[in-house]
Design a protein around this nucleic acid. Structure first.
Lengths: 113, 113
DNA sequence: CGGTATCCTTCGCGATACTG
DNA sequence: CAGTATCGCGAAGGATACCG
């Protein structure tokens, strides 16, 4: 995911970070599950492959939005979480987007049905 | 811009609508300029072509996020605006994204310089 | 259970030219 | 000033197979 060099407003940086198909859902799900394992995320996000999930998680971590704890032993265990400083702020925006989505579905329902 | 059929959460609908490279900046700029003409938008958004701008505006209007007033006569004049019902709500999310972007730039500045 | 590597396809976006 | 049409490219993302 590329972040453009020339920007009109800082908003675009944030947008470039989360514009990928899965980024927002992943963040949203991690926040809900709280300490999310890879398999938990994989099964909770419809249609995502393990490869995409890991790829996107890596990017989100590189931007400091998601953190990870690894527990050695058997079976292997990891916990993904939303970072307090950067991640939680973005969740606020995602929550609004969630609201809008819910509203959108309601409107669809009343006009279609 | 395609909206996926199978979703995990309504958030994805909103995301699918604004995921395009220019959607968020366009919305943000329209909101700031208030009654924005095409040329105003074109000159205020760095790097965008008229074709992309019109294409994206059309999509944003189809989702009810942006409205347009056309004034016949010479020269031709149009005003694009953020819709009260749907658009303004999204601006709330974009404002948060703007804040995050600003913070991001600040952090970059302190670690790099 | 978690993670990596490779190959292939699709479609978002840019460049360009034209119309009312 | 505002808007439409066509074409080509590249990166995002999907399928699949393999490793600790």
């Amino acid at each position: 995911m590329k972040i453009r060099k020339e920007i009109t407003c800082p908003l675009e940086i944030t947008h470039d970070i989360i514009k990928g198909k899965w980024k927002t859902v992943i963040l949203y799900q991690i926040n809900h599950i709280e300490k999310a394992s890879l398999s938990q995320l994989e099964s909770s996000i419809k249609g995502i492959s393990q490869k995409m999930l890991l790829e996107q998680l890596k990017e989100l971590m590189s931007y400091g939005l998601v953190g990870k704890n690894t527990f050695q032993g058997y079976p292997l265990r990891v916990e993904y979480y939303i970072t307090e400083d950067r991640g939680k702020k973005l969740i606020e925006a995602l929550d609004i987007m969630q609201e809008i989505g819910v509203k959108y579905l309601e409107d669809q329902g009343t006009t279609e049905g």
